[in-house]
Design a protein around this nucleic acid. Structure first.
Length: 579
DNA sequence: GCCGTTTTCGGCCCGACTGTTTTCAGTCG
């Protein structure tokens, strides 16, 4: 491919531009509907499946009109945006990060700028310390204190926390709620329920007929550092953990549980679309139910499913509620992969390399999960730090696997390896040896800083190898910590298709690699995916549930996920590589 | 700024909580 205009400016750049303009307008105290028009335009682009070059008439996209179209054309033609440039002239750059302070929005910031000349953190801090802020109309002593503390904690932790960093807090809260008096039902909600890989906070919905009694218990939960709000229906606290985690609890009567759960699961954009739909039918959705505007009657629902059915929609799973076409496709979601579809786990470690359990133990736990097959895939010799296995030890391990196999008539244990793809592009074992193994994974664990070309050469070598069934954690990223190596995903997916190589969704919550976005692209290109836990201990075999959640977020149908297939079918697919 | 076979003007999703007010604006999700 030669360089086209698409390479210079991509769709994401335009989306980012529109969102940035919205932020600046917010700081100018602009009409909120104008601001949201820019956000909607960005959203519309995000949802439109076409690439940049395939769109010729922008204004036919719903949400993009004359104004946003001219901003886009200007940007495409000149590479910059006059609209944004002007805004940047009028609004100081330093104000933007101040929007992250709790309780400070565009309007208040605009006034701080206009009336006190505040342009950045330092200005704001000084103004608070000199009590200038409290003197402003609409502000007061408490606002000033809040701004000051918000200011101090601004850089202490990232805006969004990695999924894995809040898993523990979620668990302990769920345990507490399960044992809490006056709690009838509860559920996680918010972006955690939607399986986003980073979250801003945790949301829980609780049904109770004694909200005050529950409230008293909530603010006394373990490790509560701060109580942000505690009203009749809403309690917000900050839990002290590895990071400070904000947790919102919503308490409702049981009949409103389903609608409240839906409401606080979001996404916000999904909710807006559904509310618009309701409105066009003469109804109004709130967390308390669906009101018929003609009769004033409010209908509640036993389940979210009933709620969707009321609008003549099939159930839309939480993972796909992102206003990215889920309403149009609601009839296909009953075919999304589920945990009960999973028949095996094709990536796990034992004490032979860096795992905590023996082969026999792993087999026992896998059998308890009802699996039909697993692959034991310890590291290969290159990975010394993980006690990687050489040819000799792998042959010994096969004997042990065969011994264990005799005790598990209903579970096929494949003798495999997670083989390193070496920095020079060669593989850790030759083909003569690889053909002795039942299952070979290709993986990169070294030289992360190589150029895209070097990385792609390594990956392509592995994919062209007839014995390598799948590529483990294809990008090598650790969410919130490490970007991963320089993979060109489009090329990787194309190559996977050509070579019948399966790509992994590594279900370790630190990784979720591939991401749901790329999984979707895989499926669109007919590339098969395997969801594996990469378990290093018995408990981490449970990552499968979260992996399936990420797969669902990527709209993966059961058929795309090869470890939902019976073993015979899987073996037939592997043969394609050797043809 | 966007949209429209009820509308080219007047709407635009809805409600809780807080702080500053004394009936409400701003923020948040």
């Amino acid at each position: 491919m030669v360089n086209t205009k698409d390479d210079a400016v991509n769709k994401k750049d335009i989306i980012y531009l529109l969102e940035k303009i919205a932020i600046y307008l917010e700081l100018q105290g602009e009409n909120p509907f104008k601001i949201s028009a820019y956000r909607k335009a960005a959203q519309a682009l995000e949802t439109d499946p076409r690439s940049l070059s395939e769109i010729d008439d922008w204004s036919t996209i719903k949400g993009i009109g004359k104004g946003t179209q001219s901003v886009i054309t200007d940007f495409l033609e000149s590479g910059t945006s006059e609209t944004l440039r002007q805004l940047q002239e009028e609004v100081p750059e330093g104000l933007i990060q101040l929007l992250d302070i709790q309780g400070l929005g565009g309007k208040k910031l605009a006034r701080l700028y206009q009336e006190l000349g505040i342009e950045n953190k330092a200005d704001l801090k000084l103004a608070c310390e000199n009590h200038k802020v409290a003197e402003l109309k609409g502000f007061g002593k408490k606002s000033e204190e809040k701004i000051l503390t918000g200011l101090l904690s601004l850089n202490e932790q990232p805006d969004r926390l990695p999924f894995d960093a809040v898993r523990g807090v979620r668990r302990s809260i769920e345990t507490a709620l399960a044992n809490m008096a006056f709690v009838e039902r509860f559920s996680i909600a918010g972006s955690m329920r939607r399986m986003r890989e980073t979250v801003k906070d945790l949301d829980f919905i609780i049904s109770t007929s004694a909200p005050n009694k529950v409230k008293e218990q909530l603010i006394k939960l373990d490790h509560v550092k701060d109580v942000i709000a505690s009203g009749e229906t809403k309690v917000s606290v900050v839990i002290e953990d590895q990071f400070d985690v904000s947790v919102d609890f919503r308490m409702v009567a049981d009949e409103a549980f389903a609608t409240t759960l839906h409401h606080f699961t979001g996404s916000k954009d999904h909710n807006v679309m559904l509310r618009q739909l309701a409105k066009s039918r003469g109804e109004k959705i709130s967390e308390y139910g669906v009101e018929n505007l003609a009769t004033g009657e409010t209908k509640t629902f036993k389940s979210e499913e009933d709620f969707f059915n009321h609008f003549d929609l099939y159930f839309i799973p939480p993972e796909v509620r992102e206003a990215k076409g889920e309403f149009e496709h609601s009839s296909t979601f009953n075919r999304l992969v589920t945990l009960s579809d999973i028949k095996g786990d094709l990536h796990m470690h034992t004490t032979w390399s860096d795992g905590a359990q023996s082969i026999e133990e792993m087999a026992r736990f896998a059998e308890a999960k009802g699996y039909e097959y697993i692959a034991i895939t310890d590291h290969s010799k290159f990975l010394r730090v993980a006690n990687g296995l050489n040819e000799k030890r792998l042959r010994e391990q096969r004997q042990e696997i065969e011994r264990v196999q005799n005790h598990f008539p209903n579970l096929k244990i494949l003798a495999g390896v997670e083989m390193d793809i070496l920095p020079d592009g060669s593989l850790d074992f030759d083909n003569a040896f690889l053909q002795e193994l039942d299952y070979v994974i290709g993986a990169i664990h070294s030289s992360f800083n190589q150029t895209e070309e070097e990385i792609m050469t390594r990956l392509f070598t592995a994919m062209e190898n007839p014995y390598i069934k799948h590529i483990a954690h294809p990008t090598g990223r650790i969410i919130g910590k490490r970007k991963g190596y320089h993979v060109n995903m489009e090329k990787l997916i194309k190559k996977a298709k050509e070579t019948h190589t399966i790509l992994e969704l590594n279900a370790n919550p630190k990784r979720f690699d591939l991401s749901s976005e790329w999984l979707k692209v895989c499926q669109e290109h007919g590339v098969k995916v395997t969801i594996n836990t990469d378990a290093h201990s018995k408990d981490t075999l449970d990552f499968m549930a979260e992996g399936v959640g990420v797969a669902r977020r990527g709209w993966l149908l059961k058929d795309t996920v090869v470890n939902t297939w019976p073993l015979a079918e899987l073996e037939a697919y592997w043969k394609k590589k050797q043809e």
